[in-house]
Structures are given as C-alpha cells and as structure tokens.
C-alpha cells in the first residue's frame, strides 16, 4: 500500500491536481439526483426524532397526537413540567429517578475503569504464566449477554440481608448497590478488553527509554502509561456511563422500593400505561432521558471512536 503512494513528489503533486479537477465536477443532473436520495435518507433518519419532539409539545389534555404535524396545534411545554414533577404514578420526581440512574452509572463505570486499567496493563505489557488462559476467561465472559449472570446474582445477592441501626433491614439485592455490583460484573470485562486494545496501540519506545533509565514496572505504569491512556479511560468510562444511565434488566429485576427506581424503569412503566397516560408525557420523558448521553456522543463522536478498541458495551 505504501509503495503505491510514494512516487517522485513532483509527479504525485500533478497527479493529485489533475485528479481533483476531473473528479470534483459532478454533472448537475447527477448532483440533483444524489441530493434527492440524500434528502430521502435524511427524512427517514429524522422522522422518528421529529415525531417525538413534536409529540412532546402536545398539551396534556390531548391524550394522543392529532396527525403528523411538525409543530402541533397549541404547542406547550406542560408535558415537560409534569414529567419533571412526577412522571409515573409512583410519587417519584424526575430528579430522584435521574439521581438513582446517575449513581448507578457513575459508580459502576468508575469502578470498572479503575480496576480494569491495571489488568489491561498487565495483559498488554507484562509477561506472566497463564496469560492466554486468563485472557480467554475475560473474552468468554465478554461474549455472554448480561442476562447470563442475572439468575445467580439475583439469588445470591438476595441472601445478603443485614440489619442496620438506622435503615433497618438492608437487602443487598433490593438496593442500588446490588444493581451496581451486577452491572460491574458485565462492565469490567469490557473495560479490560477495550483498554487493553488501546494500550496495545501505544508505542513502546517511551517505556523502553524509561526502563533504560531504571524505571520499575510500577513507575512505568503510573508515570507513562496512565497519562497516555487518559483518552481511552475517558471514553471507556463514558460508554460505561451511558449503558448504566439506561440500564434496565438488573434494576427492573432487583429493585422494588419506589425511592430506588431508575429512569429506564420509569420509561417502561410509562409504556405499560400507554392507554391511560397522554403520549406527550412519554415523549417528553424520553427526550429528557436521551439528551445528556446523546449530546456528549454527538459532539465527541470522533474522539469516542478513536478511543474505542472494540464495539459497544453489551446491553
């Protein structure tokens, strides 16, 4: 590949110039046809999004949208106001739900990244007995969907009941902490694997220089690898955060106390009450939940794809 791109510089320059001249001109008819196709695709991409946005502006008195309108008749933000106050029949506000989701998402992603990066370093740079076997273990767990550990974790965490002085009886299964543990169980292998993939791409020259200067493994890790891996750490943490922010399986299965409920649980509950709640409430809620990760993702997209060694977190 490199051999084809290395002719004499002067020759290459002229080639690029003529190429540009010839290729940049697109006949007008063709241009218009392609524009038509592109706009068609754009409409299909935007259609569901516009529909939800428009629906969220419906007044609460209208239980379902009146046809397809970009801006509905009498648009209002009252659905947002209602949803922020109390989205479902449970006496929980949007902020309380968001707080629980935020705690789950932050804790699980931070723990996974912090624990994961040291293991990733060992797998990427150090030699030890059993390396390939342990790596297979990680890959094997990574391959499993989250539902694979659901049953045993539910049963095991359910057995851990402590009587605490202030709170009273505390069941680990029926708590945010239990959900966080279950999420880390799936997130940690992803963090290790993704970070290892990124560390593998960091050139070794710096470490070799450091080791010539007598740096130990620990010094290399803390002073060279960790600073260089910051983008990958941030991206891995962000992806973990997004998956925790809308996590459904474990929270829905584990949590029964309304004060522990999360955004995803409320969304599912609202969908179950489709016949009784106005759709504008559901639309406003969906938008509020989607906006924080979507905005970060949209603007940091280039940065995210470059720090991502494998695909996505398992759902």
């Amino acid at each position: 590949m490199t051999s084809t791109t290395a002719p004499a510089p002067a020759l290459a320059k002229t080639a690029v110039k003529t190429g540009k001249l010839r290729r940049d001109r697109l006949p007008l008819g063709r241009q218009l046809l392609l524009q038509l196709i592109c706009i068609g695709i754009l409409i299909t991409v935007l259609f569901p999004i516009m529909w939800v946005v428009s629906m969220s502006l419906d007044p609460l008195s209208r239980s379902r949208p009146e046809g397809l309108n970009l801006i509905p008749a009498n648009p209002t933000l009252e659905a947002y106001a209602q949803v922020i106050q109390q989205p479902t029949n449970n006496p929980v506000s949007f902020l309380e739900l968001a707080k629980n989701s935020f705690i789950i998402a932050c804790t699980s992603s931070l723990f996974s990244v912090l624990i994961g990066v040291s293991a990733a370093y060992a797998f990427s740079r150090l030699h030890f007995r059993g390396r390939s076997v342990l790596m297979l273990v990680i890959l094997g767990v990574l391959m499993l969907p989250a539902v694979a550990t659901l049953t045993p974790l539910f049963v095991m965490l359910n057995k851990i009941v402590v009587t605490l002085p202030v709170i009273g009886e505390f069941n680990l299964r029926n708590s945010l902490m239990g959900v966080i543990l279950a999420i880390i169980s799936g997130l940690l292998p992803f963090a290790i694997w993704n970070l290892k993939g990124y560390l593998d791409t960091i050139p070794r020259e710096l470490e070799e220089a450091a080791s010539v200067d007598g740096a130990t493994t620990n010094q290399t890790f803390f002073k060279i690898i960790l600073p260089l891996a910051t983008p990958a750490l941030a991206v891995t943490a962000f992806l973990g955060f997004v998956s925790g922010w809308t996590e459904f399986y474990f929270s829905w299965m584990f949590l029964t106390k309304p004060q522990d409920f999360t955004l995803a649980m409320a969304l599912y509950a609202m969908q179950g009450q489709f016949t009784s709640t106005p759709w504008s409430l559901f639309a406003a809620f969906a938008i509020l939940v989607a906006i924080p990760p979507a905005v970060v993702y949209f603007f940091a997209q280039r940065w995210i794809t470059s720090g991502l060694a494998i695909g996505a977190v398992k759902g």
Binding site: I115, S118, A119, A122, L126, R131
Partner: peptide, 18 residues
C-alpha cells in the same frame, strides 16, 4: 506483549480485577 521478560509483579496488577 512487551519486552519478552516474565514479571511476577504482573499478578499484582491482575489481583483487583480477578
């Protein structure tokens, strides 16, 4: 992996995760 030497310190890095 890296420089082709076996390191026992590697296990310390693996302990938390495993």
């Amino acid at each position: 992996g890296g420089g082709g030497r076996v390191s026992r310190v590697a296990y310390l890095y693996l302990v938390p995760a495993f």
